[in-house]
Nucleic acid binder design. Structure first.
Lengths: 345, 345
DNA sequence: GGTCGTTCATTAATCGATTAAGCATTTTGT
DNA sequence: ACAAAATGCTTAATCGATTAATGAACGACC
């Protein structure tokens, strides 16, 4: 049983397909279709359970009502969740989302981009990965609508929806300091990406604002591809120095997972041996024997806003540039318990 | 700058679009295109960076090279990961995947199905949710190609790729018994879904095969929508009975998360107060203070095989029915440490 | 009665690619 | 030398929906 098309309806009603199209698109008024025949057409359409053919529509209109979502790393639950939000929000607006993960690899990202452009998505929402600036430039030049999500490039003027990473990181530092920790380490990725740079900057600023002299050995920047090994080395080093830290900030979820795993291995006690704050969010942080303090980014809002911006741009390509930084909220848990509390225990 | 079409190439080469199409589709031999002109066409195509229009192709051929993936609950990391595998495998074969999560809700699943049918996906891979049998029947009747993944309906003859849940659950029980535990509880979902029924059956069988009399109070079936509350109640009850359990099996990842959270709250010690085995897999199990024994399902293989089956069916609709049950592997960790080990500690 | 305006509906081009059928040429065979 | 076969390329229909342009029928107006 084939799907019913405009033609089928037209035939059954004894009219042209044009007429049917007008009626079903609510253009009866402008095109002065007779009431009687309009009603008839609508009835037949319902009777035959007519569903317009998306492909034909898209081919004609050049609009696919599809959004391409490129995510730097879908295995990170933060991104996985944001993908869900984007998908839901898009669906609410009649859009379909095609998701692709580039696994923090610019080449893969480029491939994805091309596949999706080829599929004629109407626009993109992108969580960029390192080395993909040229891709963003390319989209700009070709006038493809897009919104950057969570990560953006300060040197490229684009729409974006992101978190104030400087502030978040700064807050993490302040929180630790207020809780009585003074020798605070940061494990981050070695990266030129702005969000990472900002996280490092915020951390350093929190120290300097509190007259704590930053020690070079406290900051470890690891390579994404060799995270597991590098994190172990980083922790070994950070604990071996003369300036051994008493608190540690993980700049991402992935770093935290690897770090905590190693900390368990070393049988270090959180927070007495080491206080912990992490970026990202996930059930792990709840279930760890000592629940982990983390920075909660406004996931829902980030996702929804990015869709909102993109759809606005799709409706009106001349819409002005939109950029917004949202605040993360530090959720304090036992992993950063006030030092006084466990010292006297 | 508009995208280049067949017509553009045809014009530039001074030939018909038909010719161009033949050449670019490698049909020069069958359609006897001159070598010289074929070469010319190919060169122009490359020069203009021609990318065929998917929409037009699909409209004509009725094939979109797109797979609809409907997942019962994408927030479950097991399913999230399987989605990645499916996506990767599909991409390797030139297919694009559109993912939708129905959040264990049959109505939502129905909506998704229709949206995707409307988008003319070539076929489906489905992790069904409760109450969606009619949808599967509908697909069968309409002759839409699909493969069920991870969950299937024994009463409906379909292709499927799933885990041997009976065996997995049986193994979990045996493992606990061998480790010295005798009063074993199971927290499962209240559901008619076959995978859940099988997990319960396997558990019971493990007990009876070892001459342990099953106690009704050991089995708790909770409602998905109220998991959090129900799990707490279940654990309270399971620990309050005269036949208080010394080990607990969680039938899914979601149940385990909620259960472990509550177990932490109660300050119960794993495994001395309660040994734990769980279905599902996630970083949480690693990072828990006492790593959790779990049943590892062959995630990669499940995902890849489902794609393989579907693509085979798409190529040849008369392909015979394919059904396969794969074995899960019990990964033993400290949460089911031999009772003798910690008794003497 | 001819012109102009309405009203209602149809025709046909279009989006971009595919492909059966057809039409010239040239080559082959006898 | 003439029919048959092979070669090389074009025409036009098609997938399904949209929409500008056109047309027919009827009433009103001077």
């Amino acid at each position: 049983m084939k799907k019913t098309s405009l033609k089928d309806i037209a035939q059954k009603a004894g009219v042209s397909t044009a007429l049917v199209s007008y009626v079903l698109n609510g253009k009866e008024k402008e095109t002065r279709v007779g009431e009687v025949i309009a009603k008839k057409v609508r009835e037949i359409a319902k009777e035959l359970n007519y569903q317009p053919n998306h492909l034909a529509k898209s081919l004609r209109s050049g609009k696919t009502h599809t959004i391409g979502l490129i995510i730097a790393d879908i295995s990170n639950p933060f991104f996985a969740n944001i993908a869900r939000v984007v998908e839901d929000e898009a669906k609410r607006n009649g859009y379909t989302v095609i998701i692709g993960s580039c696994d923090e690899n610019a080449d893969k990202s480029w491939d994805l981009l091309n596949v999706l452009i080829n599929r004629q998505v109407d626009g993109f929402i992108i969580v960029s990965c390192e080395g993909s600036e040229n891709q963003i430039q390319y989209l700009k030049e070709r006038n493809v609508p897009f919104v950057l999500l969570d990560r953006h490039f300060p040197d490229i003027q684009t729409d974006f929806v992101a978190t104030n990473n400087y502030k978040a990181s700064y807050d993490a530092g302040i929180h630790l300091i207020k809780s009585g920790y003074e020798r605070i380490g940061l494990i981050a990725y070695k990266s030129d990406m702005y969000h990472m740079v900002e996280r490092i900057r915020g951390y350093k600023h929190a120290l300097s604002d509190n007259h704590i002299e930053f020690d070079d050995n406290w900051l470890k920047e690891v390579i994404f591809e060799t995270t597991e090994r590098d994190v172990k080395i980083a922790i070994d080093e950070i604990l071996a120095t003369d300036h051994k830290v008493d608190a540690l900030i993980f700049a991402t979820y992935g770093l935290a997972i690897n770090g905590l795993r190693y900390i368990n291995e070393l049988r270090l006690k959180v927070p007495s041996d080491l206080a912990i704050v992490s970026f990202g969010q996930a059930e792990v942080f709840d279930l760890y024997y000592c629940p982990i303090t983390y920075l909660r980014q406004p996931l829902e809002l980030l996702g929804k806003t990015s869709v909102e911006y993109l759809l606005k741009k799709l409706k009106n390509p001349d819409e002005g540039m939109k950029q917004i930084l949202m605040e993360a909220k530090l959720i304090a848990r036992d992993s950063t318990m006030a030092k006084s509390a466990w010292l006297t225990e």
